[in-house]
Design a protein around this nucleic acid. Sequence first.
DNA 1: TAGATAATTGACAGCGTTGTCATTCTGGCA
DNA 2: TGCCAGAATGACAACGCTGTCAATTATCTA
Lengths: 343, 343
Amino acid sequence: MKVTINDVAKLAGVSMKTVSRVINKEPSVRKKTYDLVMSAVNELNYQPNIAARNLAGTSSFAIGLVYDNPNAYYVIDMQNGVLSRCKDEGYELVIHPCSYLDDNMQDEFKTMIKRSRLAGLVLTPPLSEQQSIIDMLDELGVQYVRLLSGRESDISERNNCILVNDFAAAYEITEHLISLGHKRIAFVLGDKEHKSTSERLAGYHQALQDHHIESSDDLLYEGSYSFESGVNGAKELLKNGNPNKITAILGGNDEVAAGALFAARLMNIDIPSELSITGFEDSPFSRQTWPKLTTAHQANDVISEHAARLLFSKARGSRKQDKDIKTTFTPSIVIRESTGPAK
Amino acid sequence: MKVTINDVAKLAGVSMKTVSRVINKEPSVRKKTYDLVMSAVNELNYQPNIAARNLAGTSSFAIGLVYDNPNAYYVIDMQNGVLSRCKDEGYELVIHPCSYLDDNMQDEFKTMIKRSRLAGLVLTPPLSEQQSIIDMLDELGVQYVRLLSGRESDISERNNCILVNDFAAAYEITEHLISLGHKRIAFVLGDKEHKSTSERLAGYHQALQDHHIESSDDLLYEGSYSFESGVNGAKELLKNGNPNKITAILGGNDEVAAGALFAARLMNIDIPSELSITGFEDSPFSRQTWPKLTTAHQANDVISEHAARLLFSKARGSRKQDKDIKTTFTPSIVIRESTGPAK
DNA sequence: TAGATAATTGACAGCGTTGTCATTCTGGCA
DNA sequence: TGCCAGAATGACAACGCTGTCAATTATCTA
């Protein structure tokens, strides 16, 4: 019934260990031997037993994806990206959602890691930004790759980070609005603990400054990355102070932008003739609102796939960086119907 | 550094096997011994090694979640539900997305199962409806629980199914519309291969019949469970034949309903004064459209958690059904702003 | 209280790999 | 041809747990 490495060895007329070498692509196996073993593997349709490999080997054949993000689209994309890489490498993926606000989390997390002896971890924001987590992982000696919002320049330990340049994305979006004649551009910010929030804000500020438009704090709403926050932020921004002056709103992400759109509807403000709204990320969301959102495309599945690549490359202990691995991603603007000329 | 079962045994002054019994909650361990072992476990902060358990034991400490569903909200909910149960039971979750249209899928699937020797599988629709998959699993002797759309009566092998009564949900939604005075109620159906589609259609028909409203094929649009399908379906239904007569549209699910809403906007049709629209599932979607959707609430996380419960209970080989496990779920209507009196 | 039955515990051999280290080839060079 | 370094292979002991079955202890019955 179940085929073991011994069966393959017997059929190929070599030792167990040689089969092991072949399936692990270890060097110093003669081509002839390699082919011999492989044909036995195929003939018997041999599948190495993961549990045994995990037990016997120094590291396991599974990596973990750790996230604390309520956005379903985001998580799924991340997951699929990592998963596709895992499949290619013959690894398993262990999913670990965890709330970084939860005090027990760190313990539980530690337990999880000890139990499953993962080969490595992919950390997504905002968890990837938590120094306490990083410290713990370093202490435990666990490999990890962090997905971070940032620019190439400002991260020191580049070799285990994948960067998303939210600064550039925000700059581009803001510039797009400016080119449409907007001057009073508001921003409904995401959670302020998230690095992406400050990066996007910085990009926005830089664009304004470069175009000699003065920024003002009453154009900012400190919200969170949620639909509701978008609703509330837009309501607040549009009612307060100089309602008529604001001609464009940057949503912290697509959900926020969708919320802003919702609020505009409530207030009978037409989009885009009276107000332009933009998002970030280009989640399916942005194509399902009315009107469709101008946003910055961020291929989360591709990004996470590269994170997994990097992790495997590190796990293999290859010193030199794999050329196929891209470690910096810059979202690019997608112009749809939610933005138009300033009136 | 790493604590093994032997360390615990030594500290507790019992044999390895007794520790094993304790951590596996096997019967016939004296209370005193149990406490002794447990305190040793706690003192050493012992974590059983999953790989070793998997290798030594007859079945592994991991279950799989298999899905083929493009809906991120759906998948995430399912995943979280199963995950929360896994955590309680000390199991790992292996995620396995797979396209049921793909010919290689079945092979790949088989490989995956052989590799990881999962304790069981949770199958979500539409995969759970594929007879070929079921046959394969039976042949392989793999435990599984199916999530299915259906009524209690019509499933024979009840003991490994969790049912969602889409019939009742559709009936209730349709009745709601009828009570608002609607007579020409259209339905943008989901993928016709999905059981949920036929169940919802049947519930709709039954409600119409019970209220002596005649149904007609030109009130039906055969689409799929996507936003685009909702857009196209609504366009088609509202332009064709008797455009003015249709006063309500049932969306096959929330995405479809959101699409229909989008189409209505395009056609300058006001919701709900000119047209009522409803969804299914009560995904976050339904609260983020304008206006918010009347829909049927379906707690996918709770449902999948129960699926996992059932799976574990079966894996444990308990003959009698665990009383805590609910195997039938009936979504209940949530009335929001997308439905109103027929004009 | 003896004897029998049931409950509890332990010894030990795997589970299917990989790591270590010893052994056997191979080809190159004197 | 003979010798040697280095490449290729193999033998065997882990890895940390659970299953099996035997040994021990507690409990019950007459």
